[in-house]
Computed example of a mutant assay.
Amino acid sequence: MELSILNIKGEDTGRKVTLNDAIFGIAPNDHAIYLDVKQYLANQRQGTHKSKERSEISGSTRKLIRQKGGGGARRGDINSPVLVGGARVFGPKPRDYSFKLNKKVKSLARKSALAYKAKEQAIVVVEDFVMEAPKTKEFIAIAKNLKVADKKLLVVLPEKNNFVYLSARNLQRANVITASELNTYGILNAGNLVLTESSLAVIEKNFNA
């Protein structure tokens, strides 16, 4: 698949780039995508939820009513879960939600996500650019020139660039990452994927490593 390389003004530079079919042209594996996204979201969870159980609530341990003969349900002390203000039965405890996923599955998931974007023609390749200062207005102008400002935007750079990152930080529908940070959830969550010319080489290198 060939794509034209644009400049930051949205003009065609006359050069083209061929997307690697081994990455952007595979048959997407939906189950691999599901597992990778599930792991990504699970890793975002803090797992610090906690509710007090019966032994952790302060209160008298005196038995409130007799065991039998009262006509109602039996109950123990005032910390009983059946009473208002009592403990919670089998409440949440702090836990780790992360789980292991094989590297080959994660790689297949990222390739599948990129293949989906290629099929949807939602990939734009732009020549390498730099920003002399963090300017949100300038970043918005670039997005409008590339005609990708109407959807969620993911810009992939070959390496960290603080000026570009800071320019997009205040925009709710834009995100800037490096090619080494590329993940399945980020790709699928974006409506348009903007790849710089050099980032394509880094992506191919990472997948072939």
Rank of each mutant, 00 (worst) to 15 (best):
I26N: 02
V202T: 06
F99P: 01
S51P: 02
V148S: 10
E159G: 04
N208V: 07
A118M: 10
A122P: 03
G69I: 06
L64H: 07
Q67V: 05
K151N: 09
V194H: 01
R45T: 08
E11P: 02
E197Y: 12
M131T: 05
K117I: 01
Y40N: 10
A122N: 10
Y97L: 09
N208K: 15
S98Q: 01
S51I: 11
K100F: 14
T136K: 01
V17G: 01
A118I: 05
L19G: 10
K111N: 08
R54G: 05
D21T: 14
A168E: 05
S80Y: 03
R95I: 02
P92E: 14
G72H: 14
R15L: 14
G76F: 14
R54T: 09
A115D: 05
V148Y: 06
M131W: 00
T13R: 10
S55H: 14
G186D: 15
N145A: 03
L64M: 12
R75M: 11
K93Y: 00
E159S: 10
S167W: 11
L6D: 00
S58F: 13
S198D: 08
E159T: 13
T184D: 03
K151C: 07
E56I: 13
A113E: 09
I187V: 13
D128Q: 05
K93C: 01
L35P: 08
A27H: 09
L3M: 07
A149G: 00
T178N: 10
G14K: 00
L193I: 07
S55A: 14
K144W: 03
I203F: 00
I33E: 04
N102T: 11
R173V: 12
A149M: 06
A122F: 00
D128F: 03
F207N: 10
S51M: 07
F99L: 04
N43Q: 13
A87W: 02
A190F: 09
G59I: 14
L146S: 06
V82K: 14
Y40L: 00
A27V: 12
P134Q: 09
S107C: 15
G72M: 11
Y97P: 00
N192C: 15
R169I: 14
A115Y: 02
E127T: 12
D77A: 14
P28R: 07
K100V: 08
G47I: 04
N102P: 05
R169K: 15
E181A: 15
A174F: 11
I123M: 08
T13C: 07
N170L: 11
D21G: 12
L35W: 07
I26L: 04
E2C: 09
